[in-house]
Simulated scan of single mutants.
Amino acid sequence: MTIRAVVWGENIHERTNEVVASIYPEGMHATIAKALNTDTGISASTATLEQPEHGLPAARLAETDVLLWWGHKDHGAVADEVVERVARRVFEGMGLIILHSGHFSKIFKRLMGTPCTLKWREAGERERLWVTSPSHPIAEGIGEYFELENEEMYGEQFAVPEPLETVFISWFQGGEVFRSGLTYRRGAGSIFYFRPGHETYPTYHDATVQKVLRNAVKWAHNPQGAKPAILDAPNVPVDKALEPIVERGGKLHATGEAGFR
C-alpha cells in the first residue's frame, strides 16, 4: 500500500529571504516532497501555513498516514484548533516527523510536554551525524556517519523527554554535540525528530538527508490504520463488567453517562 505523506511547510523564509529563495525556489516543502516521491511506495503532497486551515482540514488529515512538519519564523500563527486536530490524529496512529526548527512548533511542544529548548549558533559549520542505532530502520543504508558541510549548530541540553531511541547524534565543528534523531510514541502514533534542515543551507538537497526522510516515513507509517477508539473514555455499566459485581456507594454519573473532560 502506498504511504500517503503530507509535507507541511511554513513557507515564509522562501518568500521573504533571497538566500533561502535561491536554494529552495519552490519552497523547502516542495523539495522534501519531491525527494519522498522518488520512492514508489510513498505519495507525498504539500501544505503550507497560508492556506485555509493551514492546508490541514480534518478530511485531509484523516487520509494522511505520515505528516512532516517544518516551521521556524511564525510558530505562533498556527491555529490551536489545527494543533489539536493534528495531535488527535497522532494519538490515533498517524506518523509525525518534526524537522529542524520545528522543535519549537506548537504541535511538538504539545506532544512532548516540555519546553523543547536548546543551544544554537548560525555559523555554517560542519555537522557530522553519527549513527548510534545502526539496526534501526531509519538508519538503513546510511553507514557509520554522514556529514553536512554547512549547518546551523544545535547543542545540548535539548529539553525534551527521554526518547524511545536515539538514532543519530551530531558533532559540530565548534565542539557541541546534539541528539539529532529521536523517536517517540504518543498514543498509537510514532514520532521522529530529525535535526538538520536550516533554511539558508541546501540540506534538503543532500542525498543522505533525503534517504533518512524516506526511511523515516516508512518507519512512522502505521499499516494497521487509525485507532480512533484510543480517544474514547467509556463509562462501563455494572452489568457489562467481565465478572459479576454489586454496585456500592454513591457516584457522580448515571449509567453510561460520559465523564468530565
Rank of each mutant, 00 (worst) to 15 (best):
K73R: 15
S133I: 01
I98C: 13
I138D: 03
T117P: 01
I138N: 05
I107Q: 03
A87H: 04
A123F: 02
R126M: 11
V78A: 10
L118I: 01
R121C: 01
I142C: 12
A123Y: 02
H103Q: 08
V90I: 14
D74S: 15
E122Q: 12
E122R: 12
G143Q: 05
S101E: 12
A123K: 11
E81D: 15
M112W: 02
H103N: 14
R126T: 11
G102F: 05
V78F: 13
E127H: 00
H100V: 10
F91V: 12
V86C: 06
R121S: 10
G95C: 05
I97D: 02
D80Q: 15
S133G: 03
T114A: 12
L118P: 00
H75C: 09
A87G: 05
D80Y: 11
G93M: 10
T132E: 13
A87S: 11
L129Y: 01
I107R: 02
E122H: 15
V83Y: 09
H100Q: 06
H136Q: 05
R126A: 11
G71I: 01
K106S: 07
E147V: 08
I98L: 10
S105Q: 10
V78L: 13
L96H: 07
S101N: 13
G141R: 08
S101Q: 13
H75F: 15
K106L: 10
E144A: 15
I107V: 15
E147S: 04
H100G: 06
A87I: 03
V86G: 03
G124S: 12
K109V: 07
K119Q: 14
S133C: 10
A123H: 07
V82P: 01
R89Q: 13
S105P: 11
F104H: 14
W130T: 08
G95P: 03
G113M: 02
L129D: 02
G113F: 04
G76M: 06
K73H: 13
V82M: 09
K73V: 14
A139Q: 07
G143D: 04
I142S: 12
R126E: 14
L129H: 04
V83Q: 09
H103D: 08
R85D: 04
E125G: 05
G71C: 03
H72L: 15
K73C: 09
L118G: 00
P134T: 01
H136W: 04
R88I: 01
A123I: 10
H100K: 07
R89F: 02
L129N: 08
G95H: 06
Y145W: 08
V83F: 08
E144T: 10
S101D: 13
K109P: 02
E92F: 09
A139Y: 05
H100N: 12
D80W: 15
W130S: 07
L99D: 04
